[in-house]
Design a protein around this nucleic acid. Structure first.
Length: 648
RNA sequence: GCUGCUGUAGCUCAGAGGUAGAGCACUCCCUUGGUAAGGGAGAGGUCGAGAGUUCAAUUCUCUCCAGCAGCACCA
């Protein structure tokens, strides 16, 4: 028998017969390791304890203490155990796939009857039974024909289709959890009892297309989460509760920021409080862009389809545009317009007015452009995904040799804005040429390199998303991570040589000839609607003072203090602070509770003591402790807090 | 758009084949109270829209609209 040499994590190597399994190696080390082992890593690959090892390798044996491997196996075994449970309860159910995802797994089923929330409890109970049986997990490699015949005989057409999609040279692996069997890449645990029965939970049922294709069958997906122990599960469920508390739709109502209604689905009715945030943010962006050399423009909402045909949007996105038909009395033809879904074609029209010289470039054109897109109904989500929104849009018209420096300039701009808004954790992704594209490879080479170089020059690393670019050019995507670890793609910068061509934008070069400018599409916040949603969730409603719609409530403790309350409010307002009086006939407890729930950052309480001393008692949101400060002092302090970061 | 669920007072929700209820909010009265709900009274609803079944529908059925979760989509 051939010998192989295995190297352990401590650096020691030992000889073994080829074909030995990690389970056998573990057993050779100690009884307890044999029991505790869950899987191995063999030459970097996650390896099932049962799989033979046939060549020299570096090997490590894992136990539940190895988080990454443990979680993967627990979740993957949960998927199988859940599928087995479902088929035991409803034998006619067809199985499809069940991968591990963040925090858990899902499994897609084909079954006539829909699953109900009550079914989840049933399935969980059955899963616990299976776990308690501690049945062995076993695996075999099967011949293709045998596997296909097997699944055909068992009426599992989805599995047959999966086998067809697996490349011919890959072994087909069958796994058994007790008597139940599934086609699976593996690896898996040693027996069902290794899954912690108290650390998983079935979460929800949802529809999902077979193979993610909306033209194919709609399956039923069950989601679950699983961890190594009860505490992990508890922590996760707690995190979900926290996320629910931050939901901008809930906070939007509680803080009286905005509402939506049936008559205008996907569009926001901004209330005074929400509009405060919006205008504060917009004023800030306007100042920042102004400082960064942008000119601001404004372009029409309703634009004839001819322009959209010329830009190419009509072809591609007609379905998603709001169409406006105008039947003018004397017009021969009905005019067909569309609400603008984006601003770029209009910006090219502005650019095209008058001859442009190379001396005008780079021309940075910005618009807080209100756009309308007919988003599919199922995509709508609070203010995060809407049909009417305003982008902090901008287009930089430039020559090819300005792309790198303009990109670097934008990254610096964006980094300042994100920092001012409290986001320090963000990343860049570079999406490169897709399969279907226009333009020469040389031009793609150049532009992709320009974007990458600009990132590097600015000191930022980036991840490459191969083939994810737009058909006309590559793009940078800026993704920020919020306080509870969720990622939001906000900023973008896209190089576009196509639209200037289609809409015939030109400039006169130093050589006196006409040249085609490049266009850089760029946005920093993305849309105000969505970004405000993110801000609300990031801060759980407790916005930084300068962005808070209601900054200070001055509350009287006794009505004799009312005149001084009015004086304090006036002084704060004069100093640029959003202050309001609360002189209602209510106790201070009541007022504090109400304004705390309303996320007002500062409450100033005023009783007779304060009136006499011309002071205020300050209570900050989230703090129980109060402090007494003179009127002049608090006005100076809050006036500073209310100043936007770019004006400090 | 697809699958499933949901739609009752301003908000959060209960309820039932015989046309509705709670708490909070609101209005009025009493209370002037020192940091997360003081007491009392009152007003408030075409039960998402339309059609059907029924003696009778807000309740059952169908269609539509909107929302929620996920999928698909996101120039």
């Amino acid at each position: 028998m051939a010998q192989i040499s295995l190297t352990f994590p401590d650096g020691n190597s030992r000889e073994f017969d080829a074909g030995i399994t990690a389970a056998e190696i573990a057993a050779g080390i100690s009884n307890s390791l044999a029991k505790k082992a869950i899987s191995a890593t063999v030459n970097g690959a996650h390896w099932d304890l049962q799989w033979p090892i046939n060549e020299d390798a570096e090997i490590a044996i894992h136990t539940m203490k190895d988080d990454a491997q443990a979680l993967e196996l627990i979740r993957h075994d949960c998927a199988h155990i859940m599928a087995r449970a479902v088929q035991e309860i409803w034998p006619a159910t067809k199985v499809t796939i069940g991968p591990v995802i963040e925090n858990g797994w899902y499994y897609d089923f084909d079954r006539e009857e829909p699953f109900t929330p009550e079914d989840l409890a049933l399935i969980e109970k059955k899963m616990k039974e299976i776990i308690n049986k501690r049945e062995p997990v076993t695996t075999e490699v099967w011949e293709r024909d045998r596997a296909v015949k097997f699944y055909e005989a068992n009426n599992e057409p989805y599995k047959v289709e999966l086998i067809d999609a697996i490349p011919g040279d890959e072994p087909l692996r069958m796994y058994w959890h007790g008597h139940w069997q599934d086609l699976c890449r593996g690896p898996h645990l040693q027996h069902t009892g290794q899954v912690p029965g108290d650390a998983f939970k079935l979460m929800s049922i949802a529809g999902a297309y077979w193979r993610g294709d909306s033209d194919r069958a709609m399956l039923q997906r069950i989601y679950g989460v699983a961890f190594q122990n009860k505490e992990g599960l508890k922590k996760h469920l707690h995190m979900l509760e926290e996320a629910a508390k931050r939901d901008h739709r809930k906070l939007g109502k509680e803080m009286d920021l905005f509402h939506m209604q049936e008559e205008a689905p996907g569009q926001v009715f901004w209330h005074p409080n929400g509009w405060r945030i919006y205008t504060t943010l917009q004023d800030y962006m306007r100042r920042m862009q102004d400082k960064d050399g942008y000119v601001e423009v404004n372009t029409p909402q309703v634009v004839d389809r001819k322009l959209w045909e010329a830009s190419g949007h009509w072809d591609k996105y007609q379905e998603n545009m709001f169409i406006v038909e105008v039947d003018e009395e004397h017009a021969r033809e009905k005019a067909i317009n569309a609400l603008k879904p984006m601003n770029c074609p209009c910006h090219v029209q502005v650019f095209n007015q008058g001859l442009k010289s190379y001396r005008d470039l780079p021309l940075r054109m910005a618009e807080f452009g209100s756009c309308a897109r007919y988003e599919p109904s199922g995509a709508l989500h609070g203010v995060m995904r809407v049909r009417g929104f305003t982008q902090d849009d901008g287009h930089i018209f430039c020559a090819e040799d300005q792309i790198t420096s303009e990109t670097a300039k934008f990254i610096a701009f964006l980094s300042k804005v994100y920092a001012d808004l409290g986001f320090h954790d963000w990343t860049i992704k570079l999406s490169t040429r897709p399969e279907k594209r226009i333009g020469s490879d040389e031009s793609w080479d150049f532009v992709e390199k320009a974007l990458g170089d600009a990132c590097k020059a600015a000191g930022y690393d980036f991840e490459i998303l191969e083939g994810e670019g737009a058909f006309y050019g590559p793009k940078l995507e800026f993704t920020l991570t919020d306080a509870i670890g969720r990622d939001w793609q906000c900023g973008t910068l896209q190089v576009d040589p196509n639209l200037p061509e289609r809409l015939d934008a030109t400039f006169i070069g130093a050589d006196g000839a006409k040249h085609r400018p490049f266009m850089l599409h760029r946005a920093c916040l993305g849309s105000f609607e969505r970004f405000i949603g993110i801000l609300i969730e990031e801060h759980a409603g407790k916005l930084p003072f300068w962005l808070a719609p209601r900054q200070v409530v001055v509350a009287s403790i006794i009505s004799d203090a009312d005149p001084f309350v009015a004086e304090v409010v006036d002084a704060l307002k004069a100093a640029g602070v959003r202050a309001e009086a609360d002189t209602r006939n209510e106790k201070i407890n009541y007022k504090v509770r109400e304004h705390s729930l309303g996320k007002v950052p500062v409450i100033l309480a005023i009783g007779m003591k304060e009136v006499e001393e011309r002071t205020v008692t300050v209570r900050r949101l989230g703090e129980k402790q109060t402090s007494v400060v003179s009127l002049d002092e608090i006005v100076a302090e809050l006036s500073k807090s209310a100043t936007p970061p770019d004006l400090l």
